[in-house]
Amino acid sequence: MSSSPILACVDLHKSYTMGRVPVPVLNGIDLEVREGEVLGLVGASGAGKSTLLHLLGLLDVPSRGAVYLRGEDVSSKGGQRRSALRNRELGFVFQFYHLISELSALGNTLLPAMVAPRPWTWLLQRGRERARARALLTRLGLSARLSHLPAQLSGGERQRIAIARALLGNPSVVLCDEPTGNLDSRTGQEIMDLLFEINREQGTTFVIVSHDDRLVRRCHRVARLADGSLEAVYNPQQPPAS
């Protein structure tokens, strides 16, 4: 694990407008995500964890402050550029899997690889990408489920496909929003094991929002948010007194 920050935010503010009243959600967050680490984001409901994750994932733009990816300010880039960065540099895993119901397991996994190329370019690289996606799904234990639609799969299997989809493009950072939140205890444990195994073997950086103590305890560092502010960043083996 390197100590250089791959993703960082400086003085990050976000507020939404309810009617005419601005409602602050994040109040000046400064945070670094180091390359190869698993960073946990914890906090009570409404603390701003998901909002921070969306801002780090370039799905939303901050009201103030900046997000840096490999030292470059990416939050001020245009929509097209941010979309391209999301496609190349970031991966997402959501609590409710968010798979496309019309596509098979293999189709869902391949989708990020199909976003950039035109159809005729895709025909040239299709074979290579399919082989990679197959290998990834096989590694995640889904070799027999390649042609199945999401509706034909269990929750754990769907989340594995979501993980495979996030990993296909070898992203710099994978952002996970409560990846075990919709799974039973045993399946949740399997998914946790899988994420840490990938981190160990490939050095993939993870930012994980979770309420699951078992998961949080295994993270390398944990950032705790309270009322839109960063309360503490600590080693989960030595948690600060709350």
């Binding site: 994932g57 799905l59 929509g79 097209q80 979309s83 391209a84 960065l85 999301r86 496609n87 190349r88 997402f92 959501f94 968010h98 798979l99 496309i100 989708l111 990020p112 976003v115 950039a116 989809r165």
Partner: peptide, 16 residues
């Protein structure tokens, strides 16, 4: 609508 969000997360732009 949710697929629009998923595709955005995967890197599909508004133009896409």
């Amino acid at each position: 609508t949710r697929d629009v969000g998923i595709l955005s997360a995967l890197g599909v732009s508004r133009l896409g």
